[in-house]
């Protein structure tokens, strides 16, 4: 059973802790950003139209916050596991700036416009588009941190 051997090897090697942290990191990110994207989809008027963006936000917000906390804490663990690599990485600081921007934006501008009673449609669309672009940029930053050392 090559699979069983592979699993055993992964578990016997302390590498599995790293793999687990990566799964939590990417999984937490996916759930966090995926739930934000549902609000964006509504703000873009492209889905879930029978409910307001504010209501979609209230349904998803707790999921978003908890999932992003998982992503951030596992990210810190990954960072601490090999700080010297990240310290000289050219892309990693960019990822951190974009992440900071995305987080601040999400809980200020994005939240404010999503909960507005009757926001101008163009404003909603613009704010949602910026939100999606910021989060996709964080994904690119994360992948390129690993590729362009």
């Amino acid at each position: 059973m090559p699979l069983q051997n592979a699993v055993a090897d992964a578990l016997n090697n302390s590498e599995w802790v790293f793999a687990l942290a990566e799964c939590v990191h990417i999984g937490g990110f996916a759930v966090g950003v995926g739930t934000i994207a549902l609000v964006d989809l509504r703000m873009l008027n492209l889905g879930l139209r029978r409910e307001t963006a504010a209501r979609i936000l209230s349904y998803t917000e707790l999921w978003t916050v908890i999932a992003l906390l998982f992503a951030v804490f596992s990210g810190v663990a990954l960072f601490l596991s090999q700080t010297d690599i990240y310290r000289v990485n050219l892309i990693f600081p960019l990822k951190m700036y974009v992440l900071a921007a995305a987080l601040i934006y999400n809980f200020t501008v994005h939240r404010k416009v999503a909960t507005m009673g009757n926001p101008p449609p163009l404003l909603s669309r613009f704010v949602a588009t910026v939100s999606l672009l910021l989060w996709v940029s964080v994904v690119f930053g994360g992948i390129f941190t690993g590729f362009l050392v």
Binding site: I26, A30, V31, V33, T35, A37, L38, V136, I143
Partner: peptide, 17 residues
């Protein structure tokens, strides 16, 4: 790879929903 992962995030949120 970034596009693959970005789709996982956006598409995964919809499956979850």
């Amino acid at each position: 790879l970034s596009i693959h992962l970005a789709c996982i995030a956006l598409f995964g949120g919809m499956i979850l929903a």
